[in-house]
Design a binder for these strands. Structure first.
Lengths: 161, 161
DNA sequence: TTGATAACCATGATTTCCCATGTTAACCCC
DNA sequence: GGGGTTAACATGGGAAATCATGGTTATCAA
């Protein structure tokens, strides 16, 4: 299941916001039915994915292995420590923790963007700023991506268009 | 079950502290419903996990075998000797033993951090000093981690979400 | 008896759950 | 295709449960 699209929702005084319905159905149909939410490494935003996805990634990388005697710190530790495990309530909302709200500079409005296996939550200002730099005309810098994307798209079978 | 997140709780004069609710539910839903607590080998902190997890580790490594006649020291012996088996009381608290409190330099406040299959208990000072708890923008220092994370994420297969 | 530990009771604050409402989008029948 | 009906969704507010934490009583050992 792939997160796609952009949605803008309100954040109330309690920090509550509705998870966009298409995202919600992905999460609630996952085994744990729960959400991993953490500060994005790349952007001034929050990143979310199914908790199962996060667990799979950490397991796959050995990050959650129990290395009692190992001297070296677990390099995934900062991620695990910063990750909130969240439950989506019946009406489709989550409560964004205060520290994450301030990390992403979110006050009364949150912009959700699908990013494939994960999604991001932005303040409108941060999103607008980033979107400008992400969406650019074809240049030497992004030409490679466009070609790759076209190649991948053409190799996908069974699509109606 | 994966321990994630960071929580700060009070420690009273008797050494009592509340186990953060998300951690508590993992422990109380384990078969033994009990907790293994021991000094961390890595940090100036305490490490905890379900008692079943510790048992599984020692069994898997053969550390719990009865070697009455063997002269060679059991490498798990120091760990097993230092481990306290603890019961979480009805109200969700544990009493941290005095020797563990002093090992971790904990006085009136304890910081709990999820580390995957285990969690750590720090003094606020030790945590602030040791943990790079803030996930910073991309820099040379954390770039390696980000690449690893991306690689792990992209290699996760067969997820229903 | 005394000191320590563990179980029990009490409480304020926070969080979560549930109900209610307006609005939008989908659907269906004519 | 138009109009009306229904369902889904986002959002506000309040009630109830959970949680962290302080204090008190029981239990046990030295």
């Amino acid at each position: 299941m792939i997160f796609t699209g952009t949605f803008e929702n309100k954040v109330d005084g309690k920090g509550r916001t509705s998870v966009p319905a298409p995202f919600r159905s992905i999460i609630t149909s996952s085994p744990s039915k729960e959400l991993a939410l953490f500060p994005s490494f790349r952007y001034n935003a929050l990143e979310g994915m199914t908790f199962d996805m996060l667990a799979a990634i950490t397991q796959q990388s050995g990050a959650s292995e129990v290395n009692i005697f190992k001297a070296a710190p677990n390099k995934f530790a900062p991620l695990l420590r910063a990750t909130h495990r969240m439950h989506i309530e019946e009406t489709g909302r989550i409560t964004l923790p205060a520290n994450l709200l301030s990390h992403a500079s979110i006050a009364t409005t949150a912009v959700f963007t699908g990013e494939g296996h994960s999604f991001l939550i932005w303040s409108p200002e941060q999103f607008a700023q980033q979107a400008v730099s992400d969406i650019a005309p074809v240049t030497e810098a992004n030409e490679g991506f466009i070609v790759d994307f076209a190649a991948a798209a053409s190799s996908v079978q069974g699509l109606s268009s």
